[in-house]
Simulated assay, not measured.
Amino acid sequence: MSHGTNTLTRFGAVRQYPVDLAAVSIGAILAYGIITSFQEGSVLRLFVTFPLALFLPGYALVAVLFPASERRARETTSTAIERHPRGIDVVERVGLSLVLSVMIIPMIVIALPFTAWGLSTVSIAAALGVVTVVLAQLGVIRRLRTPNPERFTVSPIASLTGLRRDESAVATVSSILLVLAIGLAAGALLLGFLVPMSTGGFTELALYGEDDNGDLVAGEIEDEIEPGESVPVTVSIENQEEEEMDYTVIVQEQQLEDGAVVERTQLDDLQTTLSDGTTGTGDLSITPTAGDGETVRISVLLFEGDPPAEPTNENAAEDTYFWVTIEE
């Protein structure tokens, strides 16, 4: 007989399991699976990132903090004395969910680099999923321990009915609009972070010289040479354009007056093809043609594909330079 009672008790607990927190837990797990299974730039991956980052963890935390529903004064006492509500309504929950989610993300991002998993898309998605599921289960415990008349339950029909009958419906609508505004602002912020990383690329150009130990160091390029002497330079090109790229490098000696280039002399050039995510280096021996006592600018111009007929710093995809003085 006791066995049947225990079975019924377990089934009763299952029936009382909050539907909204079950959906939050399942949604977090599904979002993690999609984010780690689809490539960057996927529309579906971007779509599930929004609720996982901006809503689900905050909603689970709100469930822990506020297991009860809003109780108005006329519902809690028959006297004229008003009491403070022991919970919050649906609109307030949604608003707090957005705010708390935005607060949880930075804490996770700060903590992950100190763990064995490091900071990556997979580790962030996993951390958000774990935090959401754990908080949701704590929210279930808190809610089931709350007396049934005071317990928060999700009932869209009842919420709409209450909204129609509520004398402060205008204030409630204003709260809804505020929540929507917060959600759109947070979504636009997240989109600004995600879209450039998932759809954009870049190329990086750098120059290196050798120090006294023979190591390549940025900025260690000779700035004074004798006439006819060469300047050894190592050119580095990093391709992060998400596709194979053809590059052309033009080395120009430039004479400037009042900040404007008055004469250009091409000293060298090189061409290379780099796969996405790779870095190529090339050693150049640059010999300026300037005379004794002159100071010239050596510009290294990077072009994607073939360079234009008149290559300049302005029409180059990337450019960098250094100054050199010719002295006897």
Rank of each mutant, 00 (worst) to 15 (best):
F152T: 06
S2E: 07
V94Q: 09
V48T: 05
A260H: 04
I88Y: 06
T5I: 08
E229V: 04
A63D: 02
F66N: 04
N315Q: 05
S275P: 02
I286S: 12
V134M: 13
L216Y: 01
A22E: 06
E328Y: 10
A60T: 08
G200R: 13
S97I: 10
A309R: 12
Q137T: 07
T312N: 07
A127V: 03
S37Q: 06
G277I: 04
A186W: 03
D268N: 14
A80G: 14
E204H: 12
E314A: 14
Q255N: 06
E92G: 15
P67V: 03
V261A: 03
V24I: 15
L267H: 05
T234P: 02
I124W: 08
A185F: 13
T36L: 01
I34H: 04
A126Q: 11
L56E: 08
L274Y: 13
L52Q: 04
P113E: 06
Y208W: 08
E222W: 00
V109W: 08
P156T: 13
R72A: 04
R15I: 08
Q240T: 03
P106Q: 11
E82R: 10
T172E: 15
E226N: 07
V324H: 00
V170F: 15
T248E: 09
A63L: 03
I108H: 11
L301P: 01
T325Q: 12
F193T: 12
P288D: 01
V62P: 00
P67G: 06
S236D: 07
E229T: 04
T295M: 09
G277K: 09
T5H: 05
E327V: 14
E253T: 00
S159C: 05
V99G: 06
V19S: 14
D306E: 15
T248L: 02
P307V: 03
S123C: 12
Y321C: 01
E243W: 02
P232E: 13
A218P: 00
P156Q: 07
G118Y: 09
L98C: 13
S299N: 10
T161N: 15
T146I: 01
A127R: 04
S123N: 11
I88C: 08
I26H: 04
F114Y: 14
N6Q: 08
V154N: 05
E310S: 13
R72W: 05
L216A: 11
R71N: 09
I88M: 05
A126N: 07
E167F: 04
R164L: 15
Y17A: 13
R83V: 04
V91M: 11
L274P: 09
E241T: 09
Y208C: 08
L65Y: 07
V134Y: 00
V235H: 06
L52V: 03
I124C: 11
D223L: 00
L96W: 15
P113Q: 09
I81P: 04
A185H: 11
V48Y: 00
E222G: 04
R164E: 15
V91P: 05
V170I: 15
A127L: 03
Y17M: 11
A68S: 14
F202I: 03
G282V: 10
F47W: 12
A126E: 09
D319R: 12
V99I: 15
T7A: 14
L65G: 13
T146H: 02
P149N: 05
S69H: 10
S37H: 08
V131Q: 02
Y17F: 15
P18G: 10
M103R: 01
E244Q: 14
P149S: 09
I104S: 06
D319P: 00
